[in-house]
């Protein structure tokens, strides 16, 4: 996973491959990097996602709890229809704003 500053107070975390319970150290490390950079808005880029399971959803909940504690907002883009539906089923979409693309996510984050 790669963290990049995206202007203003936003950071984009590029997710690659799998999101499972085993991804937790990598994703939390990316979170800490973004947090150290002072990001107030964290944008998860799921374009490179290959597979996500229930363990990965649980890990995203943990990620969300951390962001909430630090008053950081979470957004996401690049989800396939299938994973977007899973976000809706689990109601993660109510806590993580979903956008169609990076530009939309960042322009809204900047507003």
């Amino acid at each position: 996973m790669h963290v990049r500053q995206a202007g203003g107070d936003a950071a984009v975390i590029d997710i690659q491959g799998d999101v499972t319970a085993a991804s937790e150290p990598v994703l939390m490390s990316a979170y800490e990097q973004a947090d150290r950079q002072g990001a107030r808005r964290l944008v998860l880029n799921f374009r490179g996602l290959e597979y996500m399971n229930s363990g990965g959803i649980g890990m995203l909940v943990t990620f969300l709890i951390r962001a909430n504690r630090h008053n950081q907002k979470l957004a996401a883009f690049g989800l396939s229809d299938h994973y977007r539906e899973i976000f809706e089923l689990t109601r993660l979409d109510e806590a993580i704003t979903i956008y169609d693309d990076e530009q939309s996510a960042l322009s809204d984050a900047a507003s």
Partner: peptide, 24 residues
Amino acid sequence: VPDLDRKLNGEQDSRGWGLFLIRH
């Protein structure tokens, strides 16, 4: 039954989505 609000409030473990996903 997993409930996101309860999980975010620490009343439920973050995990435990497997059966819920299968059912849906």
